[in-house]
């Protein structure tokens, strides 16, 4: 199963991925349209000690957001492995339980619509828009098992290790 991986050293903080993400999740599918529609990107780039760090959902093996979801909207697709609260029988109600549960902080509230927003790996797109738009090679879409370059501090590992 392919995963989005981040090579932090290569990220320059250009934010192209966030624009591409918003565009992909807008109805117009372009950046200007996304801005007009005020589409929230599902990937964020944070500045940490002057260093840019992209952050998005990891589509965990045992997602705590799915366990926390009280409507049943948040599900992990058995085939694709995608974790999403969209396009399921149940719908999101914006209770923010998943936000309380995600150790990455990768789920955002959309206060206006009252629903939680997260990466859906562009649901079915061959390569997610963020990865496709990344010119520095900081975002990669590769097989989960073959890529072990993600450098994590001990702390980060401890935080997100499956329990």
């Amino acid at each position: 199963m392919k995963q989005i991986f981040v090579d932090i050293d290569k990220c320059t903080g250009c934010l192209t991925c966030t624009l591409a993400c918003a565009a992909e999740h807008s109805s117009s599918k372009d950046i200007v349209g996304a801005m007009l529609e005020k589409v929230q990107p599902r990937i964020s780039v944070e500045a940490v000690n002057g260093k840019a760090v992209p952050l998005m959902c990891r589509h965990c093996e045992e997602p705590t957001c799915v366990d926390a979801c009280m409507t049943g909207a948040m599900q992990k697709d058995k085939e694709t492995g995608i974790v999403s609260n969209e396009n399921n029988d149940q719908s999101c109600i914006g209770c923010w339980m998943c936000i309380m549960a995600c150790p990455y902080g990768a789920i955002q509230p959309n206060e206006e619509e009252g629903i939680a927003i997260k990466c859906d790996k562009c649901n079915g797109r061959e390569v997610p828009a963020c990865v496709e738009s990344c010119h520095t090679g900081a975002l990669l879409y590769v097989d989960g098992k073959t890529f072990t370059q993600e450098k994590l501090t001990k702390t980060a590992k401890a935080l997100t290790e499956a329990s």
Binding site: Y104, G105, I107, P109, T155, L159
Partner: peptide, 20 residues
């Protein structure tokens, strides 16, 4: 503002020292 509350939940649950 409840954004990223889960990061704190994980710090609590995993008892990660926050000194740094």
């Amino acid at each position: 503002d409840i954004r990223r509350a889960g990061v704190y939940a994980a710090l609590i649950k995993k008892k990660v020292p926050v000194t740094k």
